[in-house]
Amino acid sequence: MFKGVGLSLSLTGLLVSSGVSAQSLTVEMEVPRLDVAEYHRPYVAMWLAAPDNSVAAQLAVLYDLELKDEEGEKWLKDMRQWWRRGGRSLDMPIDGLSGATRGPGKHRFQFDDRVSDLPAGDYRLMVEAAREVGGRELIAIPFQWPPTAPASHAQQGNDELGAVVLELRP
Protein backbone atom coordinates (compact mmCIF):
# COMPACT_ATOMS: atom_id res chain seq x y z
CA MET A 1 0.00 0.00 0.00
CA PHE A 2 2.62 2.46 1.12
CA LYS A 3 4.87 1.19 -1.62
CA GLY A 4 2.18 1.87 -4.18
CA VAL A 5 1.77 5.47 -3.02
CA GLY A 6 5.53 6.00 -3.06
CA LEU A 7 5.75 4.64 -6.56
CA SER A 8 3.00 6.79 -7.96
CA LEU A 9 4.47 9.89 -6.30
CA SER A 10 7.91 9.28 -7.71
CA LEU A 11 6.42 8.57 -11.11
CA THR A 12 4.60 11.90 -11.00
CA GLY A 13 7.82 13.61 -9.93
CA LEU A 14 9.66 11.98 -12.81
CA LEU A 15 7.06 13.15 -15.33
CA VAL A 16 7.14 16.73 -14.02
CA SER A 17 10.90 16.96 -13.96
CA SER A 18 11.28 15.45 -17.40
CA GLY A 19 8.68 17.94 -18.61
CA VAL A 20 10.82 20.81 -17.26
CA SER A 21 14.09 19.52 -18.58
CA ALA A 22 12.65 19.16 -22.05
CA GLN A 23 12.76 22.96 -22.34
CA SER A 24 15.91 23.83 -24.12
CA LEU A 25 17.99 26.91 -24.90
CA THR A 26 20.62 26.61 -27.58
CA VAL A 27 22.93 29.28 -28.94
CA GLU A 28 24.62 29.04 -32.28
CA MET A 29 27.43 31.55 -32.52
CA GLU A 30 29.43 32.28 -35.61
CA VAL A 31 33.01 33.48 -35.31
CA PRO A 32 33.76 35.31 -38.57
CA ARG A 33 36.87 34.60 -40.58
CA LEU A 34 38.90 37.79 -40.64
CA ASP A 35 41.61 38.77 -43.05
CA VAL A 36 44.02 40.35 -40.58
CA ALA A 37 47.78 40.16 -40.15
CA GLU A 38 47.64 39.09 -36.52
CA TYR A 39 44.67 36.94 -35.62
CA HIS A 40 43.67 35.81 -32.15
CA ARG A 41 40.50 33.92 -31.44
CA PRO A 42 37.96 36.17 -29.68
CA TYR A 43 37.11 35.96 -26.04
CA VAL A 44 33.34 35.41 -25.80
CA ALA A 45 30.96 35.74 -22.86
CA MET A 46 27.34 34.60 -23.00
CA TRP A 47 24.79 35.33 -20.34
CA LEU A 48 21.09 35.95 -19.80
CA ALA A 49 20.21 39.49 -18.70
CA ALA A 50 17.10 40.38 -16.70
CA PRO A 51 15.23 43.62 -17.59
CA ASP A 52 17.22 45.50 -14.90
CA ASN A 53 20.48 44.37 -16.60
CA SER A 54 21.35 42.00 -13.76
CA VAL A 55 22.68 38.57 -14.70
CA ALA A 56 19.87 35.99 -14.59
CA ALA A 57 22.24 33.20 -15.64
CA GLN A 58 25.86 32.97 -16.67
CA LEU A 59 26.09 30.69 -19.71
CA ALA A 60 29.66 30.52 -20.96
CA VAL A 61 32.99 32.37 -20.87
CA LEU A 62 35.38 31.38 -23.63
CA TYR A 63 38.95 32.58 -23.07
CA ASP A 64 42.53 31.45 -23.23
CA LEU A 65 42.76 28.86 -20.47
CA GLU A 66 46.08 27.49 -21.65
CA LEU A 67 48.36 30.43 -20.82
CA LYS A 68 50.58 29.94 -17.80
CA ASP A 69 49.79 31.67 -14.49
CA GLU A 70 46.17 32.21 -15.59
CA GLU A 71 47.46 35.04 -17.75
CA GLY A 72 44.50 34.70 -20.07
CA GLU A 73 42.37 36.31 -17.38
CA LYS A 74 44.11 39.62 -18.05
CA TRP A 75 41.75 40.36 -20.95
CA LEU A 76 38.47 39.18 -19.40
CA LYS A 77 37.73 42.83 -18.54
CA ASP A 78 37.70 43.68 -22.25
CA MET A 79 34.29 42.04 -22.38
CA ARG A 80 33.25 45.27 -20.72
CA GLN A 81 29.56 44.70 -20.30
CA TRP A 82 29.97 41.14 -19.01
CA TRP A 83 32.72 42.26 -16.64
CA ARG A 84 30.56 45.00 -15.20
CA ARG A 85 27.38 42.96 -14.96
CA GLY A 86 28.92 40.16 -12.98
CA GLY A 87 32.14 38.82 -14.46
CA ARG A 88 34.22 40.89 -12.07
CA SER A 89 32.76 39.16 -9.03
CA LEU A 90 33.55 35.66 -10.33
CA ASP A 91 36.79 33.85 -9.55
CA MET A 92 37.66 32.28 -12.87
CA PRO A 93 38.06 29.60 -14.05
CA ILE A 94 34.70 28.06 -13.11
CA ASP A 95 33.81 24.48 -14.01
CA GLY A 96 30.96 24.31 -16.48
CA LEU A 97 31.28 28.00 -17.34
CA SER A 98 34.86 28.44 -18.58
CA GLY A 99 35.66 27.11 -22.00
CA ALA A 100 38.35 27.36 -24.63
CA THR A 101 38.19 30.02 -27.35
CA ARG A 102 36.73 29.01 -30.73
CA GLY A 103 38.09 29.72 -34.17
CA PRO A 104 36.20 30.85 -37.27
CA GLY A 105 33.02 28.89 -37.95
CA LYS A 106 29.66 28.11 -36.37
CA HIS A 107 29.58 26.75 -32.85
CA ARG A 108 26.58 25.34 -30.97
CA PHE A 109 26.12 25.53 -27.22
CA GLN A 110 23.23 23.90 -25.40
CA PHE A 111 22.43 25.38 -22.01
CA ASP A 112 19.45 23.32 -20.77
CA ASP A 113 20.96 22.79 -17.31
CA ARG A 114 21.67 26.51 -16.89
CA VAL A 115 18.05 27.51 -17.52
CA SER A 116 16.26 24.67 -15.72
CA ASP A 117 15.60 26.94 -12.71
CA LEU A 118 15.09 30.15 -14.68
CA PRO A 119 11.90 31.92 -13.48
CA ALA A 120 9.34 32.89 -16.13
CA GLY A 121 9.89 36.36 -17.54
CA ASP A 122 11.52 38.62 -20.12
CA TYR A 123 15.22 38.16 -20.78
CA ARG A 124 17.93 39.04 -23.25
CA LEU A 125 20.56 36.65 -24.48
CA MET A 126 23.82 38.62 -24.36
CA VAL A 127 26.79 37.55 -26.46
CA GLU A 128 29.89 39.73 -26.11
CA ALA A 129 33.09 39.16 -28.05
CA ALA A 130 36.48 40.89 -27.63
CA ARG A 131 39.54 40.06 -29.67
CA GLU A 132 43.17 40.79 -28.87
CA VAL A 133 44.54 43.38 -31.35
CA GLY A 134 40.95 43.59 -32.58
CA GLY A 135 37.58 44.99 -31.65
CA ARG A 136 34.67 44.26 -29.40
CA GLU A 137 31.03 43.55 -30.19
CA LEU A 138 27.91 42.94 -28.16
CA ILE A 139 24.73 41.29 -29.38
CA ALA A 140 21.49 41.26 -27.38
CA ILE A 141 18.56 39.03 -28.36
CA PRO A 142 15.31 39.53 -26.38
CA PHE A 143 13.11 36.53 -25.61
CA GLN A 144 10.48 35.23 -23.21
CA TRP A 145 10.98 32.29 -20.89
CA PRO A 146 9.62 29.66 -20.81
CA PRO A 147 8.99 29.21 -24.53
CA THR A 148 5.47 28.14 -25.52
CA ALA A 149 6.42 27.01 -29.01
CA PRO A 150 9.69 26.24 -30.75
CA ALA A 151 11.29 29.52 -31.75
CA SER A 152 14.42 30.80 -33.35
CA HIS A 153 15.73 34.37 -32.97
CA ALA A 154 18.72 35.52 -34.99
CA GLN A 155 20.90 38.60 -35.12
CA GLN A 156 23.80 39.35 -37.36
CA GLY A 157 27.04 40.74 -35.96
CA ASN A 158 29.09 43.24 -37.91
CA ASP A 159 32.69 42.84 -36.84
CA GLU A 160 33.69 40.36 -34.17
CA LEU A 161 30.61 38.16 -34.40
CA GLY A 162 28.80 36.61 -37.33
CA ALA A 163 25.24 35.30 -37.00
CA VAL A 164 24.05 34.56 -33.48
CA VAL A 165 20.97 32.33 -33.33
CA LEU A 166 18.96 31.63 -30.19
CA GLU A 167 16.87 28.45 -30.40
CA LEU A 168 14.17 27.81 -27.82
CA ARG A 169 12.11 24.64 -27.34
CA PRO A 170 9.23 24.22 -24.92
Partner: peptide
Protein backbone atom coordinates in the same frame (compact mmCIF):
# COMPACT_ATOMS: atom_id res chain seq x y z
CA UNK B 1 41.65 51.39 -13.54
CA UNK B 2 39.81 48.08 -14.00
CA UNK B 3 41.84 44.87 -14.04
CA UNK B 4 40.87 41.26 -14.36
CA UNK B 5 44.01 39.19 -13.92
CA UNK B 6 45.29 37.73 -10.69
CA UNK B 7 48.39 39.52 -9.38
CA UNK B 8 48.00 42.38 -11.88
Amino acid sequence: TVLSSEDS
